[in-house]
């Protein structure tokens, strides 16, 4: 069994498992420590330097990189810590394209959250020289865009692509202040090995990597992705009678919050005008819309004449496991053949 440690964070006694970072232990117990480059799915990086805490009154350590220990006393705030965080945040804001009103991350921006937590003062910001990078926005990808002027170079996208997706489509380019995130050779996303899964987009703490058409859902419906046999858990965001976005279910053991390009972005077929909503029957060489009863009757009459080797069933992977089970049962038991397959190669 994993060891448990008793420790104190800001006077609050908490218990945490061995190996847990101080930052994670604090966040799990509703104690906020500012952080920008940390993501619970990824290895700690220690790059943003915002999550510094004091342990046992000693010198500042990064709480994302330090693990819990028995009896330690952690302070998440002090004048030194606040000073270090404030300057780091001021530097970030002076370098950031503060396009908040038009920004996709407006209601979910780590930069704004931390600014509010620290109480960043506009008059202090005025002392700094704002940077105007004026870098081009990469809009090549049909599902998301990358605005390097909003990027805080936290590296979460790079680590996501390496650690979660295992693709390595992203990396750091240039040195110093000119460091940017980019694909190999800093080509547009569509000219790279990027698979458009959007794992980086959902983890971007600011609006640098943002979905192209962010639509806010009125409510969410928990369901399973219809594409392949993996069965990823998703939440469909619904506005009115339309599905407007898809969010991965972090609790579903099959995907633990991850999705592929189809599951995350491939939902426009639902309301697509080309989608079949009624059965078609070929009459005189032309497909003609029919009612369900007519269609089912026709199918039944043909099935009766087609038992045995004449028959084959091909089911869709978009069906549930139960539906696919029924198809094969029907094929074997009723149609008396084993020629049954499905298209789980979508």
């Amino acid at each position: 069994m994993t060891k448990e440690y008793n420790l104190t964070i800001d006077g609050q006694k908490i218990i945490a498992q061995e190996g847990t970072s101080i930052l994670d232990a604090a966040l799990e117990n509703d104690i906020f420590i500012p952080h920008l480059c940390h993501h619970p799915d990824l290895k700690p990086e220690g790059a943003c330097r915002l999550c510094g805490v004091e342990i046992d009154g000693g010198r500042m350590v990064m709480s994302c990189l330090s693990t819990v220990g028995e009896g330690i006393d952690v302070k998440t705030d002090s004048s030194e810590i606040r000073q270090a965080r404030t300057i780091a945040m001021e530097l970030l804001i002076a370098d950031h394209h503060m396009d908040c009103l038009a920004c996709a991350a407006a209601n979910d921006c780590a930069l704004l959250d931390i600014s509010a937590y620290l109480g960043i003062q506009p008059d202090r910001l005025e002392r700094l020289r704002p940077s105007d990078k004026g870098l081009p926005i990469d809009e090549s990808n049909p599902f998301f865009q990358f605005d390097p002027n909003k990027c805080v170079v936290c590296g979460i996208c790079v680590r996501t692509c390496n650690e979660i997706v295992g693709l390595g489509a992203l990396g750091f380019i240039n040195r110093g202040f000119k460091t940017v995130i980019g694909t190999f050779g800093n080509k547009p996303f569509t000219e790279s090995i990027c698979e458009s899964c959007g794992e980086c987009v959902v983890r971007c703490p600011v609006g640098a990597l943002a979905p192209k058409t962010p639509k806010f859902a009125a409510r969410e419906v928990q369901t399973t992705c219809v594409y392949c046999g993996v069965g990823c858990g998703i939440y469909l965001g619904v506005a009115g009678d339309k599905i407007v976005n898809v969010r991965a279910d972090r609790e579903r053991p099959t995907n633990e919050g991850s999705l592929c390009v189809k599951g995350r972005y491939g939902f426009n077929f639902i309301n697509h005008p080309d989608r079949l909503t009624k059965p078609l029957i070929k009459k005189d060489g032309e497909f003609v819309e029919a009612e369900w009863d007519e269609a089912l009757e026709l199918i039944a009459s043909k099935f009766v004449q087609s038992k045995g080797d004449k028959f084959a069933a091909l089911a869709s992977a978009k069906c549930t496991n139960e539906e696919n089970y029924l198809i094969q049962k029907f094929t074997r038991a009723v149609m008396e053949t084993n020629t049954v397959d499905h298209c789980a190669r979508l």
């Binding site: 780091a88 970030l92 940077s131 750091f172 040195r175 202040f177 460091t179």
Partner: peptide, 20 residues
């Protein structure tokens, strides 16, 4: 500033700010 690796905020942005 030019030789900073660009990873951490104080070095990447702090040296640039000081340089400017």
């Amino acid at each position: 500033e030019k030789e900073s690796c660009g990873k951490c905020v104080p070095c990447r942005l702090g040296t640039k700010q000081m340089l400017t």
